[in-house]
């Protein structure tokens, strides 16, 4: 196995272009499971843990190499909440947001956050430089993205107009080391604009746009509006039945969770 240790992101992108089969290695928490079980035998790895450009963290730009441990104490409440529920302290100390995005698991816990905020993913290649891809063009299927083979994920960009309130919660069998059965993010702006995104209830993160339109017009939603909001969320998600939960359970919990998070956003 060849090991390439780029000093910066440009070198990393050049190395990927020259070694098409090379596997980018950051936290290793997804990759090494595949390696340990013999599912992957990389011919080359490009180590990214010490590439500084992807460690940058500011209010609107999150470097791909930022670990969930560092996001646990960040500016964005929902991102900090979700970071704290990922894996265990050991996993959070190593696992990065770029890795979560690149793996593109339907249960990737950072994905609803990105979807709800209309985040863009920054990709870089040696041939074409950097490009920004909206989340809904990036996540295209179960563990499938529109990232090209010669591209590295370098950052997540958040919009200028960030919400006034944001909440995340997920459902799993215990409070650590679980793969989400349902994960949800709700964002609310003063004035009413609301965004709802869920994970583990479709092949990619799901935005509930009808529920958003309905509740965004309610300045002070009462019980019946909240019930209606939950009902529409349950309709809009696209879950499957698997060993973690049934379609019915996921539909029901999606509505319950979204409503609960919206109520938290509305509480003063």
């Amino acid at each position: 196995m060849e090991v390439i240790r780029p000093a910066d992101i440009q070198e990393a992108a050049a190395a990927l272009a020259e070694n098409p089969g090379a596997v980018p290695l950051a936290g290793g928490t997804d990759l090494m499971v595949e390696v340990n079980f013999g599912h992957i035998r990389p011919s080359a790895v490009i180590t990214l843990r010490r590439v500084e450009e992807i460690q940058e963290l500011s209010r609107r730009r999150i470097g791909a190499g930022v670990t969930f441990r560092d996001l646990e104490t960040g500016d964005h409440r929902a991102l900090a909440q979700l970071a704290r529920t990922i894996g265990s302290p050991q996993i959070r100390a190593a696992g990065t947001i770029g890795g979560n995005i690149g793996t593109a698991s339907p249960a990737g816990d950072s994905l609803p956050f990105l979807a709800g905020l209309d985040a863009r993913i920054e990709l870089r290649s040696a041939a074409r430089g950097a490009r920004l891809v909206p989340w809904d063009e990036f996540f295209i299927g179960v563990k499938q993205t529109s990232k090209r083979p010669d591209e590295l994920i370098t950052a997540v960009l958040l919009p200028e107009d960030l919400p006034d309130r944001q909440e995340f919660a997920k459902i799993g069998q215990r409070s650590a080391m679980v793969i989400s059965i349902v994960a949800a993010c709700v964002f609310r702006w003063r004035g009413g604009r609301t965004r709802v995104a869920l994970g583990s209830v479709g092949p990619t993160p799901i935005r509930c746009r009808r529920a958003e339109d309905m509740i965004s017009n309610e300045r002070n939603p009462g019980e019946s509006a909240l019930d209606e909001f939950a009902r529409i969320v349950s309709e809009e998600v696209r879950p499957i039945t698997d060993h973690r939960g049934t379609e019915d359970y996921r539909r029901h919990s999606s509505g319950v969770l979204a409503r609960r998070l919206l109520e938290r956003c509305l509480a003063s």
Partner: peptide
Amino acid sequence: LDGRLVCSCLVMAVDVD
């Protein structure tokens, strides 16, 4: 590893240089 608690099974040995 470098001051952080990790699972050594998920660290590729070549990355600890």
